[in-house]
Write a protein that binds this DNA or RNA. Structure first.
Lengths: 193, 193
DNA sequence: CGTCTATTTGAATGTACTCAAAAGCGGTGG
DNA sequence: CCACCGCTTTTGAGTACATTCAAATAGACG
């Protein structure tokens, strides 16, 4: 398995030695995926946290009215996975879909306990990771309340300048909390400037 | 110092022994606050993470146009504090204000490192705490995009049924991402049902 | 009682949504 | 190779949700 990317990612936050790297590699599972493949379906038992080793994926959830809401896009070098189900609830509320072909590295929930207790450094790594995610999430929340749809789209473009090659516009609209029709109009308006 | 509440809170996620409890107590600082007191001003150096031992506080940030946005209300038994400044940035972007009189327990940033390395159990505690916060934050994000202002206010009331005794309506409006005028109309509409 | 701020009410406006229809686009099969 | 299908995107018209600005009312505090 090619674990260069994930090891480099971890090493940015904590320094891990060979024994630690080796143990991590021993519990990771490679999971290739194809474009448009439904990798995880909501209601599945959440057995893994996922690291994107190559390609693009997205997570979304389906509300009571049957509408999908995109929660996250994840590119190479990102973690994904339903934290909700990883704490109390055994089943995911989110689905995960491949946007391109690519590869996930799966960290089994069943091995997490041993990983953390044998090597507390990984616990630290995830503590810092969650902390960083929380910061980003908090910013996104404020932006969602504060900015107009147009401003949110412009920010999105700055953050993910190339991702729209892989993603249908309606998913971007969903991620940004607006209708596809309105995103279409918004794009037209921006282009005409 | 009365550290019953914080110890009980921690014990819900990890089992700590006397030595661990004792060390934690030795680094916590009591910080009473009064109603309307500005406890932390944005731009201050973020030296502490705060635990609410009694009373209510709120965190807010002031945008480029000078408008305040309420980010969080915290009641007894909640953590607060600017995570952003606790990672890379030394200065807070949020301000914190007392909504009632009360007491904070401050965990100094300078002691965090020692706490975590001597007792990894606390690192675990914060890992799980951040994870849980992230879940809640993610839900709030989706709700912010999906629900109408009226629905958000109803959810807020269910979640904090008594808090409006302590908080000016304009702060609730800010937290929920709407204008005070519109919240006023919304409340009237709900009452007339 | 007067002052200061928060809340309410009113009217006009803007932002974003809904529903419906047309246009575009990629794939499949004849 | 082209015609058709299914799906996404665009365009249009009408509507609803929420904001802005302004003024009136209510409440808290000295």
């Amino acid at each position: 398995m090619n674990s260069e990317i994930i090891l480099a990612n971890i090493n940015q936050l904590v320094q891990i030695n060979n024994a630690e790297a080796y143990f991590l590699e021993s519990i990771l599972i490679s999971r290739p995926f194809r474009q448009d493949e439904l990798i995880i379906n909501s209601g599945d038992i959440a057995r893994y946290v996922m690291f994107v080793n190559a390609g693009y994926i997205m997570s979304f959830y389906t509300d009571a009215d049957g509408n999908d809401h995109v929660v996250q896009f994840a590119a190479q070098n990102w973690w994904s996975g339903d934290l909700f189900s990883l704490s109390d609830h055994p089943r995911t509320i989110y689905s995960t879909k491949g946007l391109t072909e690519g590869e996930l590295l799966l960290l089994p929930r069943s091995a997490q306990e041993e990983l953390f207790s044998r090597f507390p450094k990984f616990e630290r790594y995830f503590r810092i990771s969650f902390q960083n995610s929380l910061i980003r999430q908090q910013m996104r929340l404020i932006e969602g309340y504060t900015l107009t749809a147009e401003e949110r789209y412009i920010k999105f473009q700055e953050k993910f300048p190339t991702i729209d090659r892989y993603i249908a516009q309606k998913y971007i609209a969903s991620y940004l909390g607006m209708t596809p029709e309105f995103l279409s109009r918004t794009r037209k308006k921006i282009l005409s400037k």
